[in-house]
Amino acid sequence: MPLPHKPHRLCIIGDSQLGSLQTAMQTGLTAAPDGVSVEFWGATGPDFRQIHWGDGAIRASGAAKVTAQKINAAGRDHIAPEDFDTVIFFGARLRVAEFFGPYLDWAHTHGNLPSKAVLYTSAKEFVWETRAYRMAHTLAQSGCDVIYVPGPFYTADILDQTVKNRFFHAYPGARFGTAAQRDVLWSTLEAVSADLNISLIRQPEDTVTQGVLTDASFACEHAVENGDVGHKSAAFAARWMQEVWPHFQQKAKAA
């Protein structure tokens, strides 16, 4: 008698961006492939600093521990490499807008992006500044399959981004970013990640507007009232996961 297939164990670790994905999965906008068991784990953005790598696992303490145990169906306060076959970091403090904004602005000022070698070094510096990314790398080094879905671009038409200290005030040239330039920047981030055994999945191009913003149709509920440019709708999470699932299936098959 053939043994039943063991389910592929997937953990999705994230910050508050995780909310849109949970809703998307609950409402059937997206679903994990057959044979995959999904758990969520993480904490809100400010509490993410209470998540750290220690004793061979990603651990939460303080308020982050309370949140992590609340959103994880199994009540886990830590995630060890052997606990899961694949870990997806979702949002998880890696705000790619902070890479794209200055680079697209630089490209606008100077007429083009710098060389691939320069971009690679910069991209490595950028991802490495994010502690969660370093934890993802440690996890990947332990043999776990790691996918990173970074935090999305800010949502368009919610706030006037040209006002002092806002995005386009700091990076006025970024709004002129082209699809080709974004492709180069994403490719660089993907290459850096691949060299660190992390699969980074880019934000779908059809969700992008105004050079480096997310289309307003993907805003979260009450985004205008709350001035919330960071969070997105469940539809947005579902759209991004359309890019993630095939990649995940490929890796699961290879494993």
Partner: peptide, 10 residues
């Protein structure tokens, strides 16, 4: 800015 109301979101 991205953290606005993030607790509620999650």
């Amino acid at each position: 800015e991205a953290d606005v109301k993030c607790e509620e979101e999650l």
